[in-house]
């Protein structure tokens, strides 16, 4: 399982199980292997999940779908928790962020 910067490794691994099923519909690759997730932080007392993520391009036509599916997946993993998504383009997504498994899937 890919290591995503987090303040809670156990909860992050639990979240990733669902997030591996969230796909970029155009690329056909899940957002974890695609490298769209930058940080996943959890606050157990406030019951919040803070997601820092990116998209392959600014104003990606699939942006709403990807962030919506990310929220939906995390809501399934953590019912009753509030999901906060922050979208950043600093640093911008680049090809080196794709995992070796992702590259293999894409035919490299």
């Amino acid at each position: 399982m890919r290591d995503i910067p987090t303040n809670n490794k156990a909860l992050c691994d639990e979240a990733l199980v669902g997030l591996y099923d969230v796909y970029d519909p155009e690329v056909g690759l899940n957002i974890v292997d695609l490298g769209l997730l930058y940080q996943l932080d959890f606050d157990e007392s406030k019951k919040t999940v803070d997601v820092l993520m990116t998209l392959t391009t600014q104003f990606c036509p699939m942006g709403d779908t990807i962030t919506g599916d990310t929220t939906e997946s995390l809501t399934k993993s953590f019912p009753e928790w509030q999901i906060n998504i922050e979208l950043t383009f600093e640093p911008p997504w680049e090809f080196s962020k794709i995992t070796p498994e992702g590259r293999e899937y894409l035919g490299q």
Partner: peptide
């Protein structure tokens, strides 16, 4: 960076 709560439109 743009923020949203619970899947609201970000861009």
């Amino acid at each position: 960076a743009v923020k949203a709560v619970s899947g609201a439109s970000l861009q």
